[in-house]
Amino acid sequence: MGDLAAALYLISTAAFALIAAVVGIRLLLLSRKTGQLAERLLGLGVLLTASLGYGVMMVAAVGRSMLSDPSAPSALYTYITTAGWIFHNLGVMSVVGFVVHVFRHGVVWARVLAVVMSITLWAGWALHVFQGGMAGQLPQGGFWITFAIIGTYPFWTAIESFAYYVRMRKRVALGLGDQLVANRFLLWGIASLTTAGSIWFVTIPILVEGNLSQVGTPLSAICMLVTGVLGIATVATYWLTFFPPAWYRRQFSPEGA
């Protein structure tokens, strides 16, 4: 089961990083066309967290696990891990910026919260670096400070998306909104929840056993399996959100409804 879970985890993470790259680049191209900040922030957020962040960190984790002694210091994988973390944290800031810009434009508490989250994220990460986190040392306080942000920011996105979905349903009922656009808020909320689920499940073995690479333990295998399934669900939801196929669009057209 451990090997199957690890394989599914790796495949789903690779698919997640690949789809995220396609989505992120598409959104950045859209922002060039429209000149709007919203799609630029979201494009950077998706590209930096999911594609470059997780993708690069995954390369480092796999590479490190293939060394004869995975716990031995390796300058190469330390640099790669550091780059992955920097990409990821910048992406988190972009997604939070997207939420504030789109859902809480000009709202003071939201801006303050975004600043506090960014400072906490980087301060915790700096401590994690100081505690040897980039060199493969077991996570300590700095990691958990960082996780306080990484593990919660998708919930903010989800709450805003679901709340707006409820409002959009009321508008649609009065003929004031588009059903497909309303559904897009629901999808983005679901994608935020599955992202949060992936982040939490992949972290459970670190919390309980101290190291994700111990794939032989049943807990690690189960968590990897669940993380992999959630990763695939996230990818599928991204696709329906940003590249809705014709059959999906038809569900929300007047003829299909």
Partner: peptide, 12 residues
């Protein structure tokens, strides 16, 4: 700039 306008653009 509204969330509705932004999400309308995101799906192409």
């Amino acid at each position: 700039q509204s969330p509705e306008a932004v999400f309308a653009r995101l799906g192409g």
